[in-house]
Amino acid sequence: MSLYQRLNQRFESWVVSRHKPQAPPVTIRRGRCYILPTRPGYVFAFMLLAMLLGAMNYSNSLAFALTFLLGGMGMVAMHHTNANLLKLNVHVPRIPSVHAGDPVWVPVQFSHSTQKTRYSVLCGLKRSALSADSAVDCEADENVLSGFEIPAQPRGVYRVPRFTVATEFPLGLFQAWSWITLSSEYLVYPKPAAHTRPIPPVAGERGKRSGAQRGRDDFSHLRDYQYGDAPRTIHWKRYGHTGRLTVKTFADPMDESLWLDWSSLSDLRDPERRLSQLCRWVLDAEAGHQAYGLRLPGVELKPSRGAAHRQQCLEQLARFGTPGGTT
C-alpha cells in the first residue's frame, strides 16, 4: 500500500509539474493521456490465466482459441479506450458563483470534430471519485454538458482545481484519463447573515421603506440567462433538468436608494461577519427592488440596482481582502 501510494504520489507530482494552467478550452493530447488497468481489468486478466491453464490441462485447441481471442480483445480495447479520450475538447464555461457553505458546480462541456462518437466520458475531481452520473456520450460537432461538484469552501476567489476527465469505455478493463488544469476562476460569496439586522434607513424622504421584504414573492416570469444576472436568481432546479440556465425575474423594482456601509458595522469585530451582514443586505435590498450602493474600505459602488449591480457588489464582497483577487 505504502509503496503503491508513494509511487502514485511521485507520478502525480510529476504530472502536476507538466501541467501549466491553461485557458479553456483545452484539447486532450496523446502526451497528456494516461491509461492503467482497472480492478475489473485485473480480474479479467486473472480469469484469462485460469482459462489458459484449463486449456493447457485439457490440450483443448478451442479453449486456447477463446482465451487468446479474449486476450486480444482486451489488448485492442486498451487502444479504443485511449482513443475515446484523445482529441476531445474540454471546456469549462463560466462557473456559477455560490455563497460560502454551498457546493460549487463546475460545468464541463465536451466536444470534438472527429467522426467517432465518444462514449461514456466521465469527469470529476479525483480519479478515485468519478461518478457514473457524470457519464456523457459526445457525438461529432456537438457540445455536451457534464460537470462535477466541489465541496463547500469559505468566501474568496478560487481557481478551478485540477480535475480529471476519464473513460473506461468500451470494456471497462482500462481507465484512460487526463488531468485538466485550467486558469478559470470562480467566486464564493460570503454566506448571508441571518435576518437579525434590518437594512439601515435610506438617506432620503422615503426611508420608511428600508428593510422591506417586499418583492421577494413577486415572482413574475422565467427568462434565459444573460451575462450579469445574479446566480441567486438562476432557477437551479430547471438547470438540473434541462441543462439550460434560466433566470427568475421579479416584479418592477421601486425607485429608492440606500448605502450599505462597512463602517456602519463597526460593532462586529470579525470582518467575515461584517461581510456576511453586507451580503445579507445586498440580497435583501435587491429583493426589495431598492437602489443600493456599497462602501468597503477602498471600494465604493454607486447606488443602483439590478442583477448586474448585485453581482458586482457580491463580487467585491467575495474579493475583499484577497491579495490580487485570489486566495
Binding site: 493447457m56 490440450s59 485447441s61 486456447f64 482459441a65 487468446f68 481471442l69 479474449l70 486476450g71 486480444g72 480483445m73 489488448m75 485492442v76 480495447a77 479504443h80 468500451p170 470494456l171
Partner: peptide
C-alpha cells in the same frame, strides 16, 4: 473489437509456447 482481435488470436494460437500434457 473482435475482428481486430482475431489476428492476435491467430498469432497467439500458433506461437504461444505449448507444453505437453
Amino acid at each position: 473489437l473482435m475482428l481486430q482481435a482475431v489476428p492476435l488470436m491467430l498469432i497467439f494460437f500458433v506461437l504461444f509456447p505449448r507444453i505437453p500434457g
